[in-house]
Every structure is written in structure tokens, then in C-alpha cells.
Amino acid sequence: MQRWTTILFLTGLSIVLFAIITPLVLGQSPMLVGKLINASAVNDTGAANLVTAVVLAYRGLDTLGELAILFTAATAIGIILGTTDKTQTTSSPTAGFIVATAAKVLFPLLLVFALYIILHGHLTPGGGFQGGAVLAAAFFLLTLADSGNNIKHKVTQVIEALAGTAFIVLGLVSFALQGVFLQPWLDKGELGSLFSAGSLPLLYLALGLKVGAELANLLSSLANVEK
């Protein structure tokens, strides 16, 4: 009996959703705002990657909100899993020799790769969130290798706090200068070069560091939950 109800439910729901979604013919969605942004993004923000322009310049507050959400999730997980600053030693078996050496080799490479993604956020696809996650993966690799020296919470918390404040301060500076919060300031430089698109790369750098530190914190607190 249970089987029949599930199948009935599945088909019913999919038919309903299908009826609603099919008329959204692909490709004809009216890009009211999209066209305007495409046209004006390059000379407004100087960023080659238009998505970064939208994420940081046009809809900067969304990203700030997003950053806050990740920070809330991390703190809430910290509270729930109850990791205080004391570093307890977990009893998980130390990873094999291969993992340890691979970790040592891979760590610097991952670091470079992460920084590359963050710094080139306004040129190529990528940016703060993606770079930060890779950063966290790099740090977590170390704890995976030998569970002894896991991430020192005090350091990551300081990085996290500073990066977050940096992001907001960058916004506040534009508020002080032009009276509008989160407006891209600094000269735009010529398109495509590393130091172009004004304050966007700085914002992405702050974002990346904060996300990286936060996720590293999160992963280590997850790993160190008492067995």
C-alpha cells in the first residue's frame, strides 16, 4: 500500500510542477535588468567577469547578507557542537603514510590555487566563495593527515573577524566618501589587468579569507566532535 501512495504522490506532484514550468520556454525570458547590466557593467565597475560585477557592485548587499548567513551557520554549529577553545585530541586513527606525505605536498599547491581563484575573481569565473572553500579544504587536509595539530581556533577566529570587518569597512568607506554604502570606489584600471575593477578584488579577497577561515573552523569542529 505504501508503495502505491508514494508513486501516486510522485506522479501527481510532477504533473502539477510540469504544468507550471513547461511554458517557461528557455531563452525567451525578458532580460529587462540583465540587458541594462550587460550594457553598463563594464564601464560602471571595470570588471571583466560580469557575474562578479553583479555579485559585488550591483547586488553587494546580497553578498553581505550571504556572508552573514554563512557566519551565523558557522557560529551556530560552533555552539551546537560545543567546541570551545580547548583543543581536545580525537582518537581517530592517524591517516596512512601516503595521505600524510600527499597532504604535505598538496597543501602549498592548494593554497596557491585558492589565492589564484580569489584574486582573479573579477576576471575569470571564481571569486570569494569558491576560493574560500578551497582554502578551507587546504587547511582541512592538514588535520586529515595527522589529527594531532588541528587548526588553532584562536588564529582562524581572528582572521575571520578581521576579514569580515574589512569587507564592511570597504563598504563604509564608500559610504563616507560618496554617501552610498558598498559603492565600488578606487580607479577602475584598464580592463582585464590584475589590478582593475577598483575595490571589487579587495572585497573578494576579504570575502575569500573570511569564508576560508569560517569553513576551516566548521570542518575542524565537525571532525573533533567527541566520538
Binding site: L36, A57, Y58, G60, L61, Q178, V180, F181, L182, P184
Partner: peptide, 10 residues
């Protein structure tokens, strides 16, 4: 927000 006119920015 961000100094952009209504429908573009927030």
C-alpha cells in the same frame, strides 16, 4: 545600495 538606479541595484 551601491549607487545604482532602481531596477539595477538593490
Amino acid at each position: 545600495l551601491g549607487g545604482f538606479a532602481a531596477p539595477l541595484g538593490i
